[in-house]
Design a protein around this nucleic acid. Sequence first.
DNA 1: AGTAGAATATACCTGTTAGGTATAGTTATA
DNA 2: TATAACTATACCTAACAGGTATATTCTACT
Lengths: 143, 143
Amino acid sequence: MNTFIKREYDYAIRICAYLAGHFQKGHIPISQIATNLYLTRPFTTKIVYQLKKAGIVDTVQGKVGGVFLIHPPQEISVYTVLKAMGFSATINECLQKNTDCPLASICRIQHFFAQQQNLLIENFKTKKISEFALNDTDLIPVS
Amino acid sequence: MNTFIKREYDYAIRICAYLAGHFQKGHIPISQIATNLYLTRPFTTKIVYQLKKAGIVDTVQGKVGGVFLIHPPQEISVYTVLKAMGFSATINECLQKNTDCPLASICRIQHFFAQQQNLLIENFKTKKISEFALNDTDLIPVS
DNA sequence: AGTAGAATATACCTGTTAGGTATAGTTATA
DNA sequence: TATAACTATACCTAACAGGTATATTCTACT
């Protein structure tokens, strides 16, 4: 399988969506996030760590520690989160810098894919995390 | 790196673009295609073989054999070629069938990515190989 | 002050796959 | 009948996705 959005990236967005649903309600322990989003704790930890390094979330250490969004969710785009997670995917390898293809100057294929890629990225920038916000009541399984 | 369009897929489009530039001018030997597109012969062979199985090109065997497009290039879309090469990429794994995510019913993230994916595929279907046609004169290196 | 429960940081593992190469066979023209 | 082409499949290998493990540090609560 060839996915454009890695699992990690998707989980990162989910985690932010969960935190968006709890914005300004204090900090949320990683264990709670992991449980409610059906992720393992170590993996959730890893992602939170990256989101913190990127300045998207901050954490409180110690016994009643946890995670929270630094900025309002309506100011955080999908693109911001993807970039934070190291997203550098190009739709086609030709579009990377330093790729010196001998056909480059005449290649209309490359140009087409570049257009498509820019379109996608624009949409990722427009979409804000607030639109995905998850509340705990959303997460209660229907029985 | 995480590319959506594999090298193979890209090469397949290039090969079709080259054949489009030589449409109705007889069949082109694989060795000529490989040389002019800066690909190795075995790899070109492999791709041509797949394109043949998918009914996009046909081949003539024997000493003066070669490859040619079965249909006019303006009837072949980028999507057709991608599908022929086994393209089944989903922008996000959640969008595959048989993925039963416990969040699925409430996940707006999934819905967003699905929209983006459909957009992209629509554009792949609209774009025709004829728009990429490569002539040999295009390929003469500037000295 | 000590301890429990939380986050931090990094090291490691492992199956899959992208991106090829190799090789043996078949066909058909010269 | 030799040779230059295509056919078909088997195999290789480095990279990486998708995690797990482990040791450490921090802080609320007792």
